[in-house]
Design a protein around this nucleic acid. Sequence first.
DNA 1: GCCGTCAATATCGTCCTACGATTTCATCTG
DNA 2: CAGATGAAATCGTAGGACGATATTGACGGC
Lengths: 220, 220
Amino acid sequence: MNAPATIGTTEKVADAIRSGIRTGQFVPGQHLVEAELTLRLGISRSSLREALRHLSGDGIVAIHRYRGAHINRLTRREVRDLLEVLEQLVRLAARLGAASGHANRSLMDAALDAARRHDEDGDHRSYIAVRQAFYDCLFEVAGNRELPRVTPLRRADLFRAQIRPYQTRAQQDSHTEGYRAIAQTVNDGDVEAAEAAVAALFAQTNAMVDELPDVAFDVE
Amino acid sequence: MNAPATIGTTEKVADAIRSGIRTGQFVPGQHLVEAELTLRLGISRSSLREALRHLSGDGIVAIHRYRGAHINRLTRREVRDLLEVLEQLVRLAARLGAASGHANRSLMDAALDAARRHDEDGDHRSYIAVRQAFYDCLFEVAGNRELPRVTPLRRADLFRAQIRPYQTRAQQDSHTEGYRAIAQTVNDGDVEAAEAAVAALFAQTNAMVDELPDVAFDVE
DNA sequence: GCCGTCAATATCGTCCTACGATTTCATCTG
DNA sequence: CAGATGAAATCGTAGGACGATATTGACGGC
């Protein structure tokens, strides 16, 4: 009864754009012309505009009156602010997950498996899958249903898309390893270690942001 | 250049509904019939639907396919989850605000003034104004622009609306005093005291939630 | 050659109508 | 009274229309 009986056009379109950002089909800063998108996606303008309005609420697209919608492109400062908030929420999730002893071991195991698989093939697509699976599991284990709603993961996808050209394979692996460390400590039920693992991951990410060139970000 | 040149219909409608929730014009659980709202607000169905889609992103209204939109009504558990997340974000804001020594004293002073004014007249409308002003100031002082975006304050408004009939004047005053304490500690630049003040406020709110009757919440 | 003005064009914002899809609800039947 | 049934209400999506505004490129003055 809680399952969405059928999926609506608006959601499909929003998902298409969101996943398009992750796959590189849409690039941050890109202008989204309504007429073109309605043709490409085979939908009406009404549905498209509803979807864009939905995405603008998540901070994924920005809508300027009479200038239309474009995929957001974050400034360095926006990224820093985003990471600062994200860290708190992920830390809370890790804390809750570690504290709930009866946690779904199997879920985190799945994330660990995904991480291992990533180590093997090392594709960018699999990196995305690992990230997605990791956070899904973490929120599931945390058991707080508000958390996935407010956590700006989709907005963080923008950041991921922006830095992709400048991210080395080593950095990616290191990041995945960070996920693994968090999953491990959460699984062990070690609250303090879990929080420390989250802090370490974000410290690393923040350091990377500091080293990235200006061109990776939008101008102030 | 960063100012929204003109305000669009969609935003106006969304604001109307949001403020309608705060003023009691719309009540949690209420079914929103498109035809009626378009008449009441004097807008087209397209604009209304865009606004509703926007609000659904904030978790203020829920949209079920072919059954329309209704103002969300939170369960006790949803409120607990919401408060848990909210506390972390407000704590971050307080920490940042207290740490940034050069903070806008005048802003927090305004919040304090509002709180004092509330103590005098004690109207519910002024309570809302205090709350709004307090959080606006806090986020301003914190200086993190992602914070106001993710903080589920609008969703907390739903909670406020639900518990209004069960909240005593003393509880309201106590809550306002909590705002005052946070503002004070942030103004003083005392990071630890600020975090403690936030924790105290939420401990109090959580205790209140535990004591509220079941009828104040939506059924599981 | 550079800069401001101005018209043409592209695009958006809003309103409107239409119609199939689905739920809701009163009614009928056994 | 339970379940079937059909009408009404409501929603979801499509598509067209038109004014409003931003963008672009041409034009002329300096």
